[in-house]
């Protein structure tokens, strides 16, 4: 079981728990504002953009080539950007905090 916290751009904090699936699916399930997941999780819509809270970056890990290419020209990109459909829920990311991008 992993506990994952989302902080929306309105500063709403949503604490969730899950064992499987992607972080995007978890966000949609919990109606996290700003995460739409329009493409269904295939890294083609960028409607699932989060900034990993820096302290947890190593836990979450870096994006793949495809994902970082999707993000590179995004107006809101940061060095902690991820498309959360590309992050799998697992014990390894228990406790992380993700800030939903604008």
């Amino acid at each position: 079981m992993a506990k994952i916290t989302f902080v929306t751009s309105d500063n709403d904090t949503i604490i969730t728990e899950a064992t499987t699936g992607s972080v995007m699916e978890l966000a949609v399930q919990n109606k996290v504002k700003g995460i739409d997941g329009d493409c269904g999780g295939v890294c083609s819509c960028a409607t699932c953009h989060v900034h990993v809270e820096p302290a947890f970056w190593d836990k979450v890990g870096a994006p793949s080539q495809l994902e970082s290419d999707m993000l590179e020209f995004d107006d809101n990109v940061s060095e902690y950007s991820r498309l959360c459909c590309q992050i799998d829920v697992s014990d390894a990311i228990d406790g992380v905090v993700l800030n939903v991008a604008k």
Partner: peptide, 12 residues
Amino acid sequence: INNAKAYMLGIR
């Protein structure tokens, strides 16, 4: 093709 940069730039 395997080029998300071109895709995203195309959209823009």
